[in-house]
Amino acid sequence: MVKDITFGQYYASKSVLHRLDPRIKLVLCLLMIVFLFVCRSFPALALMVVFTLVAVGFSSVHVKMIAKSIKPVAVILIFTAILNIFYTKGKYENGDSLVFTVLGRFEVWDKGLYTALFTMLRIISLVIISSLLTYTTTPTMLTDGLEKLLSPLKKLHIRVDTLAMMMTLALRFIPTLIEETDRIISAQKSRGADLDSGGLVKRAKALIPVFIPLMVSAFRRAYELAFAMTCRCYTGGDGRTRMKQMKIAPRDIICLVICLLVCGGVIALNIFFKKVI
């Protein structure tokens, strides 16, 4: 059950997207997410969807993995769609409006259907773009990129390197702790612990035998790791250099240009076509 979490997982491959500079990737990922929300007309959104699909194509990440990353938000998707279908009423800016159909007490408006479709596409693209980032970038590269991007903050005496190291470690330990949780659950179930029945309070109480050993072992691992890091002379980020320096390659520039073109396209399509949202 806990094993199904795909967040923060890396999908090993040597695609263009994998080789992109992590700094560029982070910035572009943020930019494209912002532009998903800049989209206000269907053609503009269509451009973003096409862009997302092309990105998936270039990433060589298996379609099944992409589908898996959408699965957890399915509930949110359905929920927003239903709310939008039944509760969005009103006219377009040019005065058009239409009641599409009536279901019992509810009126379904033309605009509601459009808005529902629009939001769904938007959320799906958002999830795909952000999971592409983690699928194609190792946690180490991601935090290295983030550290570099945030390095101007060092001037404000913020320990960016420490923050980045903490993030790397946190990401590194997600799969380990998931495995550990599974093990502890199995052990307590073997002693007759009942984790899947009863009310909310009973269930929360039933988690104590899982939670305490997990915390204890997380602390134990933290101490061991701190010791191992000290043994390898880690004294914090000061004066630490990297074996692999990040360099901007021509492909990074090309990607940047493509993304900027798409953004420009979105703005243009927003202006020339009817706004839905």
Partner: peptide
């Protein structure tokens, strides 16, 4: 679960109660 008592590798990592007595009493 009660008829077949399964004891995993490194079972000490499943201890959680305040006292050893209470932990043995969990099952």
């Amino acid at each position: 679960r009660f008829k077949v008592g399964l004891c995993f590798q490194y079972p000490e990592y499943q201890l959680f109660e305040e006292t050893v007595y209470k932990d043995i009493a969990f099952g």
